[in-house]
């Protein structure tokens, strides 16, 4: 059980990448809106799409961690 917990914890580490990615994307979007406030709608849409795609890796990590705990128990 201890090793399983460590494995699940390692799988959830994928969240680091998603966090950094979404952080960078949001900071750039804030810059872009500051520079060109009239393009806010388009920037928001692109940001949301990018965040959804970046977030997917974190979600995969979470699903894998859950599968490890549920199936290998």
């Amino acid at each position: 059980m201890g090793l399983l917990a460590i494995g699940a914890g390692l799988a959830v580490l994928t969240g680091i990448g998603a966090g950094i990615g979404i952080g960078i994307a949001t900071s750039k979007a804030a810059e872009a809106i500051a520079r060109q406030p009239e393009a806010k709608g388009d920037i928001n849409k692109a940001l949301l799409l990018g965040c959804a795609l970046a977030e997917a890796t974190a979600i995969y990590g979470f699903v894998i961690a859950l599968l490890i705990i549920l199936l290998l128990k």
Partner: peptide, 8 residues
């Protein structure tokens, strides 16, 4: 997986 993972 995106929808499932997020909601779960």
């Amino acid at each position: 997986m995106r929808l499932f993972g997020n909601v779960l």
